[in-house]
């Protein structure tokens, strides 16, 4: 599997490493995907890197690669963001993978081996849900709202109504809320705020977890929040050019 830029892998690692220390990557002809629970079992994260994400991709037999994020991160730090990455896994030797970074301008090539792990990962079936509310907005804006409000309090409430979407945090000494309304005057789709809902709803989530989830803003200019009463929120980042996505399901806080 050859990626045109290592930056994609670096960003994916950054988006999951606070939640997941080791995970199985499933490789098949469609691409590479992973699903993992965080150690607190509060978040389920799913990453899909489709074949379209790669400059070249071949997977003759489906394989599962058990990857320890810490050494994977050390190896990836050796790659320049604009260097090509080739990941090689051999069906004859499933003990390790090889990673090759190529810098075409400087005619430099570096090669690494990463030992694979035998990970006994749980796998969850996530049914297609009928969401009560969906909000799409610039991922940078969502990140700023969450980062700011997480400083105010550890509970982040998201309310959707005719007023728009309201994010509220309450701490011991202060309370803050931010309201976003659907944008009408913005041409660029990536800068638009779109809100749809069937009934008004209000859900509360742990702000520190939501903060970790906003790290994936580096992967996509937009984010979609899908909510339903008494259900986990789904925070979805779609990568450009059908390259794949990262989805987080975060369990609510309730009485």
């Amino acid at each position: 599997a050859r990626l045109p830029r290592s930056a994609v892998l670096k960003k994916i690692l950054d988006s999951v490493k606070d939640l997941v220390k080791e995970t199985n990557w499933d490789c098949n002809e469609e691409g590479m995907s992973m699903q993992a629970l965080d150690t607190g079992r509060i978040v389920l994260v799913e990453v899909m890197l489709r074949e379209a994400a790669f400059e070249s991709y071949a997977c003759e037999v489906p394989m599962t690669l058990g990857i320890d994020m810490e050494p994977f991160g050390k190896v990836l730090r050796c790659a320049g963001g604009d260097e090509k990455v080739t990941i090689k896994a051999s069906r004859n030797d499933q003990d390790h993978i090889e990673l090759v970074f190529e810098n075409e301008e400087k005619e430099r090539m570096s090669a690494f081996e990463l030992k694979l792990m035998d990970i006994d990962g749980e796998h969850m079936a996530v049914p297609d849900a009928e969401w009560g509310a969906e909000i799409s907005m610039p991922s940078s804006e969502f990140k700023k709202i969450v980062m700011d409000l997480a400083e105010i309090g550890s509970d982040l409430t998201i309310a959707v109504s005719k007023l728009g979407v309201t994010f509220t945090a309450q701490g011991n000494n202060c309370k803050g809320s931010m309201v976003l309304q659907p944008s009408t005057a913005v041409d660029k789709k990536s800068e638009q705020v779109a809100i749809s809902f069937t009934e008004p709803l209000e859900m509360t989530f742990a702000a520190p977890y939501m903060k970790m989830i906003t790290k994936a803003a580096a992967l996509s200019s937009t984010v979609t929040l899908s909510l339903d009463e008494a259900c986990p929120i789904c925070v979805r980042y779609e990568m450009e050019d059908n390259a794949g996505h990262i989805k987080y399901y975060l369990a609510p806080k309730e009485d």
């Binding site: 079992r41 796998h123 969850m124 079936a125 049914p127 259900c231 609510p252 806080k253």
Partner: peptide
């Protein structure tokens, strides 16, 4: 205070 739910009960383990 609100209680943090676990994610697992919302989905079906495979």
């Amino acid at each position: 205070a609100l209680m943090q739910r676990e994610i697992v009960p919302y989905f079906e383990a495979l």
